Amino acid sequence: MVLVICIVSLVLCVIASLVLGSRPVRFHELIDGLFHQDVDSYGANVVRKRISRTVFSLFCGAALGVSGALMQAVTRNPIADPSILGVNTGASLFVVCGIAFLNISTANQYIWLALAGAAITALFVFGIGSMGRGGATPIKLVLAGAATSAALSSLVTAIIIPRSYVMDQFRFWQVGSVGSATWSAIGTFIPFLLVGLLVGFITAPALNALALGDDVATGLGVRTGTLRLIAALAGVLLCGATTAMAGPIGFIGLLSTHVIRLILGPDLRFIIPMSALSGAIILTISDVGGRLIGSPGELEVGVVTAFIGAPILIIVAMRSKVRSL
């Protein structure tokens, strides 16, 4: 039933993304844009332009949803998310360094730098959070992520302020948007998405064992260190690739995973694929909402998800604190 509801919601979100915006599209224009390539009306062209944007938002939402689920499973932290752990900011720093010092400008160049930045930042945050008594506890990981994100954001600002050409290229990307989607960018993104999703689906049963504790998981034959490394790399791959293509969009992993966990329980065999669906739905509907709120312009989707996600994060953190007491 949940799967059917998600699929229906996804279809409705796709239709809304194609029809709604600063220029609403009528039904016959939607049909012309989708099925009648010989029709060259303004409405049909608007629909064709929005198709790539809609596909891109679906893919990015799915990637961020699965990335959040994997990071929460690996760290055993209910509020882990690429944006909260500073991974997005690390990817942003490497991209802005590439723009400023290496003169990069293409999606292929962005994606490798973003992946390197995301991976290094994830390792750094986990290393800092693991220090001291108790190891990598959820609160220590969040604090390490917040501190790292603040420091890296300062470095990003220090690099772009004296370089106006970098600021012009970087400022729109930094907010997080799917509006500049092209089929070329989607083609570049798909291999990373498929590898990350495949690894997430394959590791789900072992991650269920990991949730019982390292000792129990080892007794069940799980190599906990190898599993954490592989699952974390998949999460970083999905997050880094998305950040390179669309900018640092936050809170999708947190929102989608928590919604699914509340409905279906803790089994990652269901959470990971359903987080992909719910992440695609949340990001796509947030993009539509940004277009409607900012009409005749648009509000970037990263701003919309931040407005939605920040209160949810506070609520989740408060509930987690109450349970721990």
Rank of each mutant, 00 (worst) to 15 (best):
M131D: 00
V142C: 04
S154L: 09
V175M: 14
A185Y: 01
R133M: 05
L237G: 00
G250E: 00
G235D: 03
V236E: 08
A185P: 00
T242M: 09
I230P: 01
G145N: 05
L220E: 08
I249W: 05
C239N: 07
A146W: 01
R223D: 15
Y165P: 00
Q169T: 14
G134S: 09
F172C: 06
D214G: 02
L212M: 14
G132S: 07
L207M: 07
P205Y: 06
R133S: 14
A150G: 06
G176K: 12
G219P: 03
A246N: 09
A147I: 14
L212N: 09
L207P: 00
P205S: 11
T188C: 11
G127I: 04
S164N: 15
V156I: 15
A150I: 12
S154Y: 10
R223W: 01
L237A: 05
F189M: 12
P205K: 12
A209V: 04
A211M: 14
S130C: 06
L238D: 00
A231F: 04
I128K: 04
A246G: 09
A181G: 05
T182F: 05
T243E: 03
D215E: 15
G200M: 02
M245W: 10
G196H: 05
P191D: 12
T148I: 15
A150W: 07
S149V: 08
G129F: 00
G135T: 12
P248S: 10
I202S: 04
T226G: 11
G179I: 03
P191V: 10
A147S: 15
A181P: 02
T243A: 07
G219V: 07
A150N: 13
Q174L: 10
A185W: 00
T188D: 12
W183R: 07
P191K: 12
D215R: 13
S149K: 13
A136D: 04
G225C: 02
G135N: 11
A241C: 08
G225L: 07
F201Q: 07
I249N: 05
P162D: 11
A211C: 02
G221K: 11
L143Q: 13
P162F: 02
L194T: 14
A158V: 06
